[in-house]
Nucleic acid binder design. Structure first.
Lengths: 237, 237
DNA sequence: GTAATAGTGTCTTTGAGACACTATCCC
DNA sequence: GGGATAGTGTCTCAAAGACACTATTAC
């Protein structure tokens, strides 16, 4: 910091500026009973007390080094998971989204494998299938936020293997395909899907199998590189 | 607003919360002499007075309906352009990026056609080729912000026709290809490039031509749908 | 004609889509 | 054997890459 800046800082107060209320909100996705679910919490305080809302809140200017830390902290508080797939979606800010006035939120989405959720889920949080969640009377503009996150997930599912992050330790290709199909809301041709995934080299085959219907299906596990993997071609909706 | 919220609001003050200083910053791209340039302004006030910085600033809680409005306002102030291509890149927030304390910026990038710039460019703003810009001693973390915007533009150039937004009214396919190549920092095979662009149906051929070297090259103009256009396949770097 | 740039023809390769086919296992 | 699910063989098609080729015009 130079001298001039030091001098400036002595006379500076953040209250000299009109700044918006700033928060972080999170859409946490998991697969439950083969369906895409999101985690919602009931608001314990005004405003919008009692309404269902996305996990989120304010940045802790002392604890949080950066905005990503805020997101991870919120996620850990709600799920006990430390290294989920986390991605910033967009920031939404306007006059009307919060009764307290001009407000800005940085929206994230996370993909978690529900088997990994540790310990106590707080009593006031609940998983809802995304369709049901969108039918609730949600706090603030959280319906729109969920839709934005869902769209991002859907778009990325067209050209990445991201949905693998939602799967349990071991899973069959048919199970994975079903998740892709739920996210995309579209049936995929089985042959292409298997070729696409298998050529990607992002899954380890195991010698285990699972009885599904009448025949055993081979179980696979993720190599963990799916977070980065881009398929050579994009699917078309 | 319900009764409970009304009551809550009566006792509410934004100063009860510790919130970060929040701003908007913009990387404005244009082609000048066949090179990708960015617009920088010299900071007129502390902090970091005298340093080159990205156009940007605080949200005007009175004037700006939403965060996009802030971005458009800043862009108009600097360039006089009302409907550029504008896209939100990411929000960056941490303890250290601004000496005033925890600060968050919403980063945008804009693509403009320099022929459209109206009226007075303010004396303290200047265009710099992106390479040179990155070598300057820039204010705050603006070097990183430029790199993030450049990466976003590069990625999108692999699968969209976005660079068309940078072109003047009329241009040749070779000129367009050169811009693609500058952004991607990679030569593209001429035949594939022309096929890709022409099959996309996003350009109108004109009966005009331009002498370039020894032979005339046909001039094209944008149909304006390039903002949305996704090529069927992604290029590979 | 030569140099320089614009623009084409056409073969190969890759991966998606269609669709009929086979394999395994429980009952 | 029947039913249900897993999984394959193989043809077609679209678009990218390679690369040799032709076209136009100033000089």
């Amino acid at each position: 910091m130079n001298k001039q800046d030091k001098k400036y800082l002595e006379n500076y107060s953040i209250h000299d500026f009109d700044i918006p209320l700033t928060s972080v909100d999170m859409v946490i996705f998991a697969i439950i009973d083969g369906e895409l679910n999101v985690l919602l919490v009931e608001r314990e305080e005004a405003p919008q007390q009692g309404f269902l809302a996305l996990p989120g809140g304010f940045i802790d200017l002392q604890k949080d080094e950066d905005i990503t830390a805020t997101a991870y902290r919120k996620l850990y508080e709600k799920t006990g998971i430390k290294s989920p797939y986390l991605e910033q979606v967009e920031s939404i800010g306007n006059k009307n989204r919060d009764i307290r006035g001009w407000s800005l939120t940085v929206l994230y989405f996370a993909l978690i494998n529900r088997d990994k959720i540790k310990g106590q889920k707080s009593q006031n949080s609940q998983w809802l299938p995304i369709k049901k969640a969108l039918q609730q009377n949600l706090a603030f503009d959280h319906k729109v936020l969920i839709e934005k996150a869902q769209n991002r997930l859907r778009e990325k599912t067209l050209y990445t293997a991201l949905p693998v992050e939602l799967m349990p330790e071991l899973f069959t290709l048919t199970e994975l395909q079903t998740i892709f199909e739920t996210i995309l809301e579209k049936k995929l041709p089985i042959k292409s899907f298997r070729r696409r995934i298998l050529n990607a080299n992002i899954l380890h085959p195991t010698d285990k199998s699972k009885l599904s219907g009448k025949r055993h299906a081979q179980l696979f596990k993720s190599t963990g590189i799916d977070r980065e993997y881009y398929f050579p071609r994009t699917l078309v909706l």
